[in-house]
């Protein structure tokens, strides 16, 4: 069904915009393989995140993704680059048809290309791995006849600002469990509106805050989608109140 492939989130995994979902990135069924590509930009007051990603989904069971992030420091100059490899395994269910939500487990292994800024802010490591479990369900016709989709995820992480500021810090160097959630309504087969929330740790003592976004997605066909969101990323490395536009293109290559 159109729209059920979802999007690719900022770390390259199939999801919403900032949260991984239990869905895999494609329309593949148990007989099929699909490949998709994504380009995303999040432009907030003092920073700009550029992300390029590709993912392959196998037989509606396994997703493998790669992503490259370039985080532009607009006010200071320069950038931070990070590479992420992700794997997600569907444990149970179908997001539309099963009685219980679709459940997946996944990991995201992240590695900074240069540890200079991570060291500067007091991070312990320049690489790290997040582990998550996500549950996603579509309720057909649940909101006045419109399809409702919700997702909740729990993530074990040591990452500071998703890893861009390294992993662990002086305040905390252990894995912590973070809650993430998304809710959306498909107002036609081509438009979805929703909101996302992502809890974040504050390992560095720099007042790292949780993320939220409100999104609208346009899905003209199964081959392409376009998402526009208003993102509130809170305080990043001492620069408070970072808000701005999130724009993402997602294409199904195969």
């Amino acid at each position: 069904m159109i729209g059920t492939a979802g999007l690719t989130q900022v770390e390259g995994s199939g999801g919403g915009g900032i949260v991984p979902w239990a869905t895999l990135s494609g329309y593949d069924s148990r007989e099929q393989v699909s490949v998709s590509a994504t380009a995303t930009q999040v432009d907030v007051d003092n920073y700009r995140l550029n992300m390029l990603g590709a993912s392959a989904s196998f037989y509606d069971r396994l997703e493998v993704s790669v992503a490259h992030q370039r985080f532009d420091l607009k006010s200071l100059g320069g950038d931070i680059r990070q590479n992420i490899v992700g794997v997600k395994y569907r444990v149970y269910g179908d997001v539309v048809y099963s009685d219980w939500p679709q459940i997946s487990v996944g990991l995201q292994h992240k590695r900074l290309e240069d540890n200079a800024i991570a060291n500067l802010v007091g991070a312990q490591d320049d690489s790290g791995t997040d582990f998550y479990v996500a549950a996603t369900k579509v309720h057909l016709g649940a909101v006045g006849g419109y399809n409702l989709v919700w997702n909740v995820a729990a993530r074990a992480t040591k990452a500071n600002q998703m890893g861009l500021l390294g992993f662990g810090g002086s305040q905390n160097d252990s894995y912590e469990l973070m809650a993430e959630a998304s809710i959306g309504v498909l107002f036609s087969r081509h438009f979805a509106l929703g909101m996302e929330y992502r809890q974040k740790p504050d390992n560095l003592g720099l007042g790292e805050e949780d993320w939220t976004d409100f999104f609208v997605t346009y899905i003209p066909s199964k081959d392409f989608s376009l998402t526009l969101a208003w993102a509130d990323l809170g305080s990043i490395a001492g620069a408070s109140d970072q808000k701005g536009l999130y724009l993402s293109f997602n294409g199904q290559l195969w």
């Binding site: 309720h139 649940a142 909101v143 006045g144 409702l148 919700w150 809650a179 959630a181 809710i183 309504v185 909101m195 929330y197 809890q199 805050e209 949780d210 939220t212 509130d232 809170g234």
Partner: peptide
């Protein structure tokens, strides 16, 4: 932000209410 989580839960509850 705890308030964001509250907003999300509120929207979820309103959605269920409308659905009902």
């Amino acid at each position: 932000m705890v308030s964001s989580m509250k907003n999300l839960i509120f929207i979820a509850l309103v959605s269920w209410f409308i659905a009902g």
